[in-house]
Computed example of a mutant assay.
Amino acid sequence: MTDDRRIPPAALALGLAGLLPFLWSAATQLFPAVAAFGATWLPPMFLGSYVGLTYGTVILSFMSGALWGFAARAPEAGPLPYALAVIPALWVFFTVTDASDTSSIFLIAGFVGLLLLDATFAAQGLAPRWWMKLRLLLTAVVVACLSVALL
């Protein structure tokens, strides 16, 4: 018998790997030597808050797709789950418009809001039972990394 609350190893490994750009963003903001090293090999878009904002925008949109998949599991629920699923992508599209602190705050709020949507879908039994364990872990790291830009 398997524990359906245990995060599958592949989901955990890939979820943690997906944190690397956020961790890199924070590291290049906190440690000038890391930023200088990165600058010798990478364009500015892949350093500092830029990489966190850019990658965060991609991931928040990607997560709308995951929510859409959950919504598809409940066609009897009507259009509401689908409408909820597109909120993260629309949020990031309309609020993260530059590399300002305001965009960082909006992106952080988007990830916190995504966590609430994750919990909503999980409470309805549309997400796997392990989903919230993974999402809480990943969201905590993402929010911490994105918050570095506000220091």
Rank of each mutant, 00 (worst) to 15 (best):
A10F: 13
S104E: 09
W91E: 02
A26Q: 10
L60M: 08
M132F: 06
L151W: 12
T40L: 14
M45F: 03
Y82A: 01
F46S: 02
D4I: 12
P128T: 13
M45R: 15
G125S: 11
D118G: 04
P44K: 15
T54P: 03
I108L: 02
L90R: 13
K133N: 08
P128N: 15
A99E: 10
T120E: 14
G38K: 10
V112H: 08
L14N: 04
A13G: 09
V51W: 07
L14S: 05
L53D: 02
G48R: 05
A35K: 09
A11D: 12
F111L: 09
G52L: 03
A35N: 06
G48K: 06
L42H: 05
A27Y: 07
W130F: 02
A83H: 13
S49E: 13
S49T: 03
L134W: 07
L67D: 11
V58Q: 10
T102R: 01
F22S: 03
V143R: 09
A10C: 05
T28G: 02
L12R: 11
F22E: 05
T28L: 08
L60I: 01
L14H: 07
A71Y: 14
A27W: 08
L150N: 00
C145Q: 08
V92Q: 15
P8K: 15
R5W: 01
D101S: 06
P88D: 00
F106Q: 07
P21C: 12
T95G: 04
A123G: 05
D118F: 11
Q124N: 07
T97I: 06
A17S: 08
L107V: 11
F22K: 07
P21H: 12
T97N: 14
A140H: 14
R135D: 03
T139M: 12
